[in-house]
Write a protein that binds this DNA or RNA. Structure first.
Lengths: 239, 239
DNA sequence: CGAAGCATTGAAGTGCGTCAACAATCGTGG
DNA sequence: CCACGATTGTTGACGCACTTCAATGCTTCG
């Protein structure tokens, strides 16, 4: 389902037939990946990038004591390591949070594409910059928002990003993370995640049950989170 | 002093004479900027990118209550908003922390460069990805490191980055931030920054006086911070 | 059906925040 | 060159958001 990826791009800019064809041809191989698998390992030399077609993955960084931080969640349609095209090795792991399907895109094809279709090159450069903007918003969350506001913000972001690829509505979306994984996204302990979730439910903002997120009061949730989707760059860009 | 910028690039990859010339020609104008000035404002349409030639700047994001988070510090040689070339507007402000001089690089010239010299285009794409890696490391700090480890990590990073551009040694560097600004980098209060600084001094790791950072025990500091410079991508890359 | 992971709860602790006061330094104008 | 207000740095007392520890029940799935 590379359509999710195309949806994601077309949400931000025009994609011509030529460009679409180049994108489709760039995927050399598709693979199934079980939940828990380390898809890309920190520091390893890379020769291709991984496009997530189905499922959720995460970029994670670990400290010695066992502490783990998720620096970005990835949803269908995302390149999980497009930055690997220029960096050639990652400063973090990429792990599958659910059973997933991925498409492998050899760096050689990316290079060929970016030289033959420079505009498509700029589109992908743009997309890595959007990833960086998402990471900056997470910095703001971790540095300045309270636990409940931080969690609210995450829900707003994920639901919005899933909407773009046809996997969520204003009323909710799938949300397959365990509370432990949520805690690794939010820089909190599992215990506090549990209590914060209860507080969000008590305030009738969201419910999270059976890996399903239900948004009861979107305006209230976005207000609590101070969520402004501008950082997702969802409007049309001339590139 | 565009040499800082060239040093920074050459630390990561070869830069040919042609490429160097293109870089030098890309700067249309240089300007002085006083401390405190907002150099680039969140959301404003951009037509050029800003290369920091001298001084310190910061990317900052604000919340409604007045809370402010620095998402990245910029040192001489950095592009403070190279991502603006593809994003066309920023999701954060860029403010001058000291009196600075900058070079303005019109996006038209960047575009021309990236099409005429695709490898230089990849170098700049690479550099925005290094910025993103720095931001990810900050996410790890804010989410998982204690106040003292976080501060130690910041000192390690800044000193290392300044070394690259000839403005620091293993024993220290200029460090012109106030404790308030430091607190905005670290997601702490000013009071706690003050106490944490004292603790670092008490442990004979660093001293910070008169806007000057002295590193007394680099190994100890890096151990406390769990600092591994791999995320700065300081080795030579084939691009 | 048993084991392992996951969710939930309570009690107690602590790292960092808040508030408030004061000292030191800096920049500016007289 | 000094006066003076503003910014920055420092300290103490106290509070709280979040952590830690520990126990219990609930799912899930070989």
């Amino acid at each position: 389902m590379i359509t999710a990826h195309l949806h994601k791009l077309r949400q931000r800019t025009h994609v011509s037939a030529d460009e679409e064809q180049a994108i489709r041809n760039s995927v050399a191989e598709t693979r199934s990946v079980p939940a828990g698998r380390v898809m890309v390992r920190c520091g390893e030399p890379l020769s291709h990038s991984v496009m997530l077609l189905e499922g959720w993955m995460a970029r994670v960084k670990d400290l010695e004591g066992g502490a783990r931080q998720v620096t970005e969640l990835h949803l269908p349609g995302d390149f999980v390591d497009l930055h690997g095209f220029t960096l050639k090795r990652l400063d973090h792991d990429v792990v599958a949070l659910t059973d997933s399907t991925v498409g492998l895109v050899p760096h050689g094809r990316l290079r060929e594409i970016t030289e033959r279709l420079p505009r498509l090159g700029r589109i992908y450069w743009f997309m890595t910059n959007v990833d960086a903007a998402i990471t900056r918003e997470l910095v703001l969350s971790l540095g300045q928002r309270s636990a409940i506001s931080r969690m609210a913000h995450l829900f707003c972001e994920i639901c919005r990003r899933l909407e773009i690829v046809g996997r969520g509505t204003e009323h909710g979306c799938d949300f397959p993370l365990t509370q432990r994984e949520l805690s690794e996204c939010l820089g909190l302990t599992v215990v506090h995640v549990n209590r914060t979730l209860q507080e969000l439910r008590r305030r009738a903002l969201v419910e999270l049950e059976n890996r399903q997120l239900t948004i009861r009061d979107r305006a209230g949730l976005e207000a609590l989170a101070e969520f402004d989707p501008a950082y997702l760059y969802l409007d049309q860009h001339r590139l």
